[in-house]
Design a binder for these strands. Sequence first.
DNA 1: CGAAGAGAAGCGCAGCGATC
DNA 2: GATCGCTGCGCTTCTCTTCG
Length: 571
Amino acid sequence: MANPSPKIPHFFQPLLHNFAANLAIPVAFYEKYLEGRPGCGTRAELRSRLRRQGWKVGMVGRRIVDGWAEFADAHELKVGYFLVIKYDGGTVFHVSVFDTSACEVEYGDEHDEDDAVEGDGEELKMDSGQTSYVGTLRPSYLISLHFPACFCVANKLNVSCSEIIVKDEAGKVWPVKVKCKKGGNAVYTMGGWRSFVEGNGLQKGDRFNFRIVSKGKIPVLSFHRIGMRDQTEVATRAKRRKAAEVPELVTSAGEVEHPSLDEDEHDNVEQDDEEDTVEEDDDEDLSEEDYEEEDMVKEDYDKEEDMVDGDDEEHKTELDHSRKRMKNRNPATDDSTASYVGTMCRAYLTSLYFPVYFSRANNLDSCSEIDVEDDRGKLWPVKIRLKRNTNLVYTVGGWTSFIRGNGIRKGDRYEFRVISYGTKPVLSFRRIGPKHKAALEEEEKVPELALRHFEKTTGSLIPGKYLIRTITQASLDRSRLFLGINFAKMNGLADRDRSGDMILRNSQGKSWVATLKREGNSSRFFITSGWTEFALANGLEAGRVFRLEVVEPESKLLTLKLTRRVTLEDL
DNA sequence: CGAAGAGAAGCGCAGCGATC
DNA sequence: GATCGCTGCGCTTCTCTTCG
């Protein structure tokens, strides 16, 4: 991000699981800069590098609601991203998007999206490395897609290239013949393209992103649709895809792939991602039919897999067990187990151990080999083993080559994410950079700002709404805060069994994810993982008295907001 | 490089004493 | 007696070291 001037008010906002619902402006920011201004609280305009003219959005109080989903769609916002939002007066906000590697997302400079969709000119947005571009499917593109010349030249598609592999969102690969235009550098698709279009249910007007995955003899390009979030549409198109005949393919590496085997698993991943973008409460709306349909798809997967591994009964039994586990996975929580973030320790440079929950949730404990996709999209085969007596899955052959090949060092932070299931899962490995400077500076300001806000805060004590406690050293040492049975009852924690993730928020709107746990089968609940981090970040040392307030009590996700913090002497 | 051992850390459970 | 905050114990998981 460009070094923001302190004269331009700005705030940052991390995107949590329920970010798709709305964008909340921090209370202190709203009160200081927006409250009382004409038009504020009813409408606003969000501008970004993606579209000069901005998005008109509606506000309810300090929340941006109407039009926010479209903005999030267009920018492909995801959980873990964060936004830096500058306010230059009036009702206009400039939004910069930062991804999980803390780097600003490039959308192409000052590109006008609407013009691109409807205009006749070449609509092209290409990243700085020219390894990907964004476009819109014109009617003629459903027959034959014309790649932009600069994209072809940058990736040598125009040099002795007669075939490419297109990898769709489900990870399925489609061989497509291509031809170079006469006297030009541009390349267009021939045979195989229409199968891809039909198989993926592509339609006129669909926006897409093509990215170069590998530039070998037969280049591999990944294809992603942009902005298709509607559940029904996703499901409908997935069905169409399933109906398409997919032959067994032989990759350039000479390996036999069974695209249909992995496809269904990918669909689940895809759906999980979709669900992350909807409100938490929507999870409850998944009908029995939704789950049954998912199971039916998995049954097909099982049958096909059995045909492949029919001779190996023992292996098949193991696979069955693991698939049963997969079927029991709750789609609403899958994203939390599809990836994890870690720090490279010295031992991991020779052999990496996966967290047990991660390897179990993704069936790594029943696999002997995985492919690890690095930042450049290159796949590294890595053998894995299950450690006896401990259930730990660890890497063996091939791992150190990956480490050396990518210059990974001790202390590097990384994210592993499963991007393809099956007998040989594919895991993406992404290095995560240090937190953005601006974000760190904002975090440092939080306790002081919070204190000022709490000092202003008063309110009557509504039973069940507040949790008032004195911080003890033991509470911080063990990262546990007991909520009290009455508080749990008042908020229906036991009735709806809301154990799991929860949100702790300070008055600035900054949120921490914590874990709410039930003590055995009792009616006692306590906050654990995340509690100490939250307490320390907000100056809640031992001896302090604080008040937490229930936010959005009707929500499935318990959210507690720190609204008062005092010393014992103040009471 | 692969495998396994050992200690540290995390976590669930049961139960204690204080309080209401 | 019920509730609450807290702690001890033991099992599981994680991390690091050592060995072949």
